[in-house]
């Protein structure tokens, strides 16, 4: 029986859609095998590289993975660390030992000196336990408290478009507005700079999220940035 391939690169696929038949093909990303067939498990984009059929999801909430750089909001302070909301269904905590490269003496220091309720922190996911608790670190640069600025939320699947090829889109926005822009893989974006310029950047990012499929996106972004 000959192996069959039903999709090509860049095809949009739907959950349950058959991608290939035959044991020689290998599923990757959001593709799965059932018997001798391979199916897509999410709405996504097919990528065929030799025998590997990968589905890149086009939608979905943030699900944490080790090594992700995320932005979290401090929601609680405990005895030995901070609780953070990282825009995921699971609770996240930043232990006191992971908060700073320097030693924190709890007898001498108020924990809020480092991070207070409502602060946003750029950090890294170091582990997700069996019980689905996320462990974070903010010990090393560039991880830090994000002071002031503005936070907006975008779909995590659209982050590559917001960043652009080799960071081109971010660079465009930074150059035009002088704003600092930090993107978390969990879909939170931090923008800092002059308030009205921040608003322009936020609108441009939302525009990219919404209209990425339209022709001439970069030109439209440039136009938006020039307009203000």
């Amino acid at each position: 029986m000959a192996d069959k391939l039903f999709v090509k690169d860049h095809d949009v696929v739907i959950p349950g859609e058959e991608l290939a038949e035959g044991l020689d093909y290998l599923p990757a990303g959001k593709a799965f095998r059932d018997g001798d067939k391979i199916f897509a498990s999410t709405i996504g984009l097919a990528s065929v590289k030799g025998r590997v059929i990968k589905i890149i999801p086009l939608a979905g909430k943030y699900m944490p993975r080790r090594g992700d750089v995320v932005i979290g909001e401090v929601t609680g302070i405990g005895h030995s660390g901070w609780m953070l909301d990282v825009n995921s269904p699971y609770p996240a905590d930043l232990n006191i030992g992971e908060a700073s490269s320097e030693y924190i003496d709890l007898n001498k220091t108020d924990m809020t000196y480092y991070f207070d309720i409502g602060d946003y922190v750029l950090c890294e996911v170091i582990n997700i336990s069996e019980g689905k608790f996320i462990k974070l670190t903010a010990k090393y640069r560039p991880y830090r408290k994000l002071k002031g600025g503005n936070i907006i939320e975008v779909s995590p699947t659209k982050i590559p478009r917001i960043i652009g090829k080799a960071g081109s889109m971010i660079a465009l926005m930074k150059d035009a507005t002088g704003c600092e822009i930090t993107v978390g893989q969990n879909g939170l974006v931090w923008i800092s700079g002059q308030a009205d310029k921040q608003a322009v950047v936020a609108r441009v990012i939302k525009f990219i999220e919404r209209e990425a499929h339209k022709q001439g996106l970069t030109d439209k972004v440039k136009e938006m940035l020039r307009g203000k």
């Binding site: 409502g118 602060d119 946003y120 994000l146 002031g148 600025g149 503005n150 936070i151 308030a195 009205d196 921040q198 608003a199 936020a202 609108r203």
Partner: peptide, 21 residues
């Protein structure tokens, strides 16, 4: 929320809104 609040307050002082209104 305090971060977003401060940002929105600063914008309003400039007679501006985040959606451009």
């Amino acid at each position: 929320m305090k971060v977003i609040r401060n940002y929105l307050a600063e914008l309003l002082k400039m007679q501006k809104r985040e959606d451009g209104r």
